[in-house]
C-alpha cells in the first residue's frame, strides 16, 4: 500500500485568465487528516475537483491510490470515484428525495442489493451522524447543520477510502461545529479513511488535522503539522494563522495615494 493516498506533482491550472495553481506539489498521507487552508478564492475547492477528476489540469500529475486519474477512461474513472466521497459546502442533497433516499442513492445506483440490506446500511450510516430519526424528512425541512450531516452520511454510503470536506465548518453555529469536528475525527479514526479538509476556520481545523498545507497565490506557502506552523516565522503563514488584518495580504486594494485620488482631475 502506498504511503500517500494522493500525490500531486507540478500541478498547473488556470481558469479564464487567472492562474489558479502554478506548480503545486502535495502529498496526502493515507489514513490521516490533511487540511488545506488559505485565503478565500485561492482555489481550494478547485483542488478537490482536480483530485476527483471533475477538472483536468493544464500540466502536472494527480495520482490517487496509485492511479493517474486523469489518464483513466470514463468507466475506470467512475470505478475510481467509488473510493471517494465528497462533502460539498452546501450539502448538495437531492431536493426531491427524502433523507433516507438521499443516503441510499449511491448504494442503489452502484450496486444491486436487496432493499432490506439497503435499509440496514442506510440506517447505520444515519446512526453514525446521529440522524437516524430524521430519515423520513425532506431536505427542505432540515436545518443547515442537519443537511450537512445527512450529506456526510451520504458521502460515507459506499465506505470510501478518501473523504474530501469542502469548507465543512463555514457559517455554522458553535454546537454544530463541535458536532462536525467530532464526526470527522471519529470517522477518520474508526474507519481508517484518508481525509482532506478544505477550510479557513483555523482553530477547528487545526484541532483535528494531522498535517496542514497553506495555499496562497497559486503556491504552497507553508506546510507542516499544526504545531510547526504555529511556530513558523514566515510572514504570510503568520498572518493567516493569526488572522492579522494587514501583512503580506494587504488591507488596501492596490491604488494611488489618498492625496492623488482627492486631487484627481476627474473627480466630481
Amino acid at each position: 500500500m502506498l504511503e500517500n493516498f494522493v500525490t500531486i506533482r507540478n500541478l498547473q491550472f488556470h481558469y479564464r485568465d487567472r492562474v489558479i495553481f502554478d506548480g503545486v506539489d502535495l502529498d496526502i498521507p493515507r489514513g490521516k487528516i490533511t487540511a488545506i487552508m488559505g485565503p478565500s478564492g485561492t482555489g481550494k475547492t478547485t483542488l478537490l475537483r482536480l483530485i476527483g477528476a471533475q477538472l483536468t489540469p493544464d500540466q502536472g500529475t494527480v495520482d490517487v491510490d496509485g492511479q493517474a486519474i486523469h489518464q483513466l477512461s470514463r468507466s475506470e474513472l467512475y470505478k475510481a470515484r467509488r473510493k471517494m466521497g465528497m462533502l460539498f459546502q452546501s450539502g448538495a442533497l437531492f431536493t426531491n428525495l427524502s433523507v433516507f433516499d438521499n443516503v441510499a442513492f449511491p448504494i442503489r445506483e452502484n450496486y444491486r442489493l436487496p432493499e432490506s440490506m439497503i435499509y440496514d446500511l442506510v440506517l447505520l450510516k444515519l446512526e453514525a451522524v446521529g440522524l437516524r430519526g430524521a430519515r423520513h424528512l425532506m431536505p427542505s425541512e432540515l436545518s443547515g447543520g442537519m443537511a450537512r450531516r445527512v450529506a456526510l452520511a451520504r458521502a460515507l454510503a459506499l465506505d470510501p477510502q478518501l473523504i474530501m470536506y469542502d469548507e465543512p465548518f463555514t457559517g455554522q453555529d458553535p454546537i454544530t461545529m463541535g458536532v462536525l469536528v467530532k464526526l470527522i475525527k471519529t470517522i477518520n479514526d474508526t474507519l481508517g479513511t484518508t481525509s482532506i479538509i478544505v477550510s479557513h476556520d483555523v482553530p477547528e481545523t487545526a484541532s483535528i488535522a494531522d498535517y496542514i498545507y497553506l495555499l496562497a497565490d497559486g503556491k504552497i506557502i507553508g506546510h507542516g503539522s499544526p504545531e510547526t506552523l504555529q511556530n513558523s516565522s514566515a510572514e504570510n503563514v503568520n498572518q493567516f494563522l493569526k488572522g492579522l488584518p494587514d501583512g503580506p495580504v494587504p488591507f488596501n486594494y492596490p491604488c494611488n495615494t489618498l492625496e492623488d485620488d482627492l486631487f484627481e482631475e476627474d473627480r466630481p
Binding site: Y78, F105, E109
Partner: peptide, 14 residues
Amino acid sequence: ATDQLSSMEMMAVD
C-alpha cells in the same frame, strides 16, 4: 447551482 449534479458525479453516477 446547488452542486447536485457535481455531487452525483462524485458518487460515481453519471
